[in-house]
């Protein structure tokens, strides 16, 4: 586990990572193909920071053409099925957040025309929270949200 101290440093060196994300992740995590993995956004503990780091503060409009499917009540917060579906044309990416999780960003998904813009996952929810999906389609950003009441489980914090 030699790598632990280095990973701890990602928080401290966060600003440097903006300047050279490729060199940064490449040096820390050899053999990881995801040189573009957005560590700044994943490490953010506030939803607004995660959004800002991922989308640069660009305007985001609410849309009903983007939907989240999830149970209204999750009895086990460790395994909550979540689906994201985008009905907007030319969607090329989306991100999924859980507002109340210690680090809200759960996933960023890059789509291509080879797949239907519809993905299902299972995520950990620490507590009752809003799920937020932000999608990019034709260069514009769109948002939708859905709340999930969590009655048990969670991220296993304690």
């Amino acid at each position: 586990m030699k790598r632990r101290p280095l990973l701890v440093n990602t928080g401290l060196l966060g600003l440097g990572a903006i300047a050279s994300p490729l060199a940064f992740t490449g040096a820390l995590i050899p053999r990881t193909a995801g040189a573009s993995w957005p560590s700044e956004a994943f490490d953010a503990s506030a939803l607004s920071d995660a959004e800002q780091r991922l989308f640069d503060g660009r305007p985001i409009q609410d849309s009903t053409e983007l939907s989240i499917s999830a149970p209204d009540i999750a009895e086990n917060g460790r395994v909550v099925p979540v689906g994201v579906r985008i009905a907007l044309p030319n969607a090329n990416q989306f991100a999924l957040f859980a507002a109340k999780n210690p680090t809200p960003l759960l996933a960023r998904v890059h789509l291509t025309p080879a797949v239907a813009p519809e993905v299902a996952l299972r995520v950990k929810l620490d507590e009752t929270t809003e799920l937020i999906a932000i999608a990019e389609a034709d260069g514009q950003l769109y948002r939708t949200s859905r709340s999930v009441k969590v009655t048990g489980g969670g991220c296993g914090g304690g």
């Binding site: 099925p81 960003l105 759960l106 998904v109 890059h110 797949v115 519809e118 993905v119 991220c155």
Partner: peptide
């Protein structure tokens, strides 16, 4: 990284907030 006949069809960046033994479902056109 999800591939269809060797071509990247979808790429996902994940956090530790994805459940253990991750499940993923998608549709390839």
């Amino acid at each position: 990284i999800c591939e269809h006949n060797g071509q990247v069809a979808m790429r996902l960046d994940w956090s530790w907030g994805i459940s253990a033994d991750p499940y993923l479902a998608f549709k390839v056109k």
